[in-house]
Design a protein around this nucleic acid. Structure first.
Length: 320
DNA sequence: AAATACGTCAACCGCGATCTT
DNA sequence: AAAGATCGCGGTTGACGTATT
């Protein structure tokens, strides 16, 4: 047989707590602890409340060092980063923010932070749509340039579509194996399809959490000839230097743009696009992104077997 | 000034996991 | 082993305050 019912549902008080109830509960727990049994607690104290209600009141309001409101930018960033990597697991997120409760963070996200991000997402989508026509033409030109350089198209068609599988014959290339550039997906898509559409790489999170270019200091050995105009038209914020070996090297390379206020915002693009334009393995870009943007504990959570339903998402191939 | 819309957040509800009998 | 209580969590609700019409 099981236990007796926890409380008489008809005889417990609901709704807001009075100051008297608060002080009774607080005084008792501070002196005696919870005793590991919330259900028995209200009876011991003489409160006409359900044990669950007492637990909630203590955890969310009465326990020491609770902070309410006034979230700092750093806290915003942590919440956003964790939401991106683990979703709405508020208790885990709260554990990273001393003094904050899961309830507070959940409320804050639902009422403010989400809207803040949505506004930015909308702006980015408008800007992206504006560039769509240009991009099509530039992609075509870059396809031809790749063909002219070291890329060997697997199906050997004269004018291949971007979806064609391709591989490089150049030993210095970071691309290790053929991959389908158009079938790569945003690794955050499963996390929140609404915020991170499948065809986008850079999550909006970059925008709010940091102005750091995700590819800052990321030297890309680009096999394309110097082509600053094309790169800047694509919104790639690149600095180029001529290497000793004669190749043009691009540092930076994240898809960035400067706003009129002088701050930097991140535009959405895709792994496939960046990989294609920078001639860099998408696998390496994923790990570089994680290394720069995500603290190790978040990466670990990101790579939990259960997260995307696969064992390790450090490889883009696992996500497609 | 009154009515309505909107934003916030404490508290409740229900569910799955775990524990106790 | 099974039944049912308890815990902990995330989603949702509704009261309340503020802004707008």
């Amino acid at each position: 047989m099981g236990r007796a019912p926890c409380c008489d549902k008809a005889n417990v008080k609901k709704g807001p707590w009075s100051p008297e109830e608060d002080s009774k509960l607080k005084a008792y727990i501070e002196q005696n602890g919870t005793g590991g049994n919330w259900i028995a607690l209200p009876q011991r104290i003489g409160l006409k409340r359900c044990g669950k209600s007492c637990r909630l009141r203590w955890l969310n309001y009465l326990r020491p060092n609770i902070k309410h409101g006034g979230f700092s930018e750093e806290e915003d960033n942590i919440i956003c980063s964790l939401y991106v990597s683990i979703g709405s697991r508020w208790s885990i997120i709260a554990a990273q923010l001393p003094g904050r409760t899961d309830n507070d963070i959940k409320n804050y996200w639902n009422t403010r932070l989400k809207k803040k991000l949505l506004g930015k997402q909308r702006k980015q989508q408008e800007a992206q749509a504006h560039k769509a026509n240009n991009n099509t033409m530039i992609k075509q030109e870059l396809t031809e340039r790749h063909t002219d350089n070291n890329l060997v198209l697997m199906n050997q068609t004269a004018n291949p579509p971007l979806s064609t599988l391709y591989q490089t014959t150049c030993a210095s290339s970071s691309i290790q194996e053929p991959y389908d550039v158009n079938n790569l997906r945003n690794p955050l898509y499963e996390c929140d399809p609404f915020f991170f559409p499948q065809d986008q790489l850079f999550p909006v999170i970059n925008d709010c959490s940091t102005s750091k270019n995700v590819f800052e200091g990321f030297q890309v050995q680009n096999l394309l000839p110097s082509n600053n105009d094309l790169m800047s038209q694509m919104g790639c914020n690149v600095n180029t230097t001529l290497q000793k070996d004669g190749f043009q090297s691009y540092s930076g390379g994240g898809v960035m743009e400067s706003s009129s206020t002088g701050t930097t915002s991140t535009e959405s693009s895709s792994w496939a696009d960046l990989s294609f334009f920078l001639n860099y393995s998408p696998d390496n870009m994923v790990s570089k992104y994680q290394e720069i943007m995500m603290p190790q504990e978040y990466v670990n959570a990101f790579q939990e077997p259960s997260f995307f339903g696969c064992n390790n998402i450090s490889s883009v191939h696992d996500m497609v």
